[in-house]
Simulated scan of single mutants.
Amino acid sequence: MQPPDQELLAFDTSALEDRDEQRARAALDGENGPLHRNHLRIALHLDRSAKAESGRTDTDARYTAGYSQALKGMAALLRQTSYLPEDGHPS
């Protein structure tokens, strides 16, 4: 079962540099809605992975922090519609 849009959109937007709520909603309602929903599901998975990674104690703390930040950064780009086709057609 796929999560409803509200669960996919339940994330902190304060750290997103290019968040445009109108663009994100339009992406969900438009031709690329299924792709954007998939990106949001991937972002949820990346958030969970970042949280799990940040709790690791078996590796260098700087590595762990950097890896967690990279996962969060990828999740942010997916949520900001950065990887959706701009013209409505896959590149």
Rank of each mutant, 00 (worst) to 15 (best):
G55Q: 13
I42P: 00
P3G: 09
G30E: 08
F11A: 08
A70I: 00
A52Y: 08
N32Q: 14
L40H: 07
E31L: 04
S82C: 03
D47E: 15
L40K: 01
A76T: 02
L8Q: 05
L77A: 15
D20C: 10
I42D: 08
L16N: 06
E53R: 13
T64E: 01
H45S: 07
R56F: 01
L71F: 03
L9T: 11
L84P: 00
R23E: 13
M1W: 08
L35N: 02
R23T: 12
L44A: 08
G33C: 01
G88E: 13
R37E: 15
R48Q: 11
Q22W: 04
R41P: 02
L8Y: 12
Q80I: 04
L77R: 14
T57A: 13
S49C: 05
Q6E: 13
A76Q: 08
A52S: 15
P4I: 12
H36V: 01
L16H: 14
Q6I: 07
Q22M: 08
D12A: 03
H36M: 13
Q80M: 12
T59Y: 10
D87E: 09
T81K: 01
L78M: 10
T13L: 05
R56Q: 09
G66E: 07
L44W: 04
T64P: 08
A76Y: 05
G88V: 14
I42N: 03
F11R: 01
K72Q: 11
I42L: 11
A26H: 13
A27H: 05
A61F: 04
E53G: 09
A43I: 15
L71R: 02
A43D: 06
T81N: 04
K72I: 01
Q69Y: 01
D29P: 05
H89S: 11
G73V: 05
P4M: 10
G66C: 07
D29K: 12
R48D: 11
S54Q: 11
S54G: 06
T13S: 09
T59E: 08
G55H: 07
Q22K: 15
T59N: 08
G66N: 12
R79D: 02
H36E: 10
E86N: 05
D47V: 06
Q22D: 10
E31W: 07
R79P: 00
L84Y: 04
P85C: 10
L16G: 05
E17Y: 01
E17R: 03
S54R: 08
H89E: 09
G55D: 06
Y83P: 12
G55A: 06
T13D: 01
A26Y: 04
P3N: 14
G30L: 09
A61K: 14
A10Q: 14
P4V: 11
S54C: 02
A10Y: 07
Q69S: 03
G66F: 04
L35G: 05
T81H: 10
F11N: 03
Q6D: 11
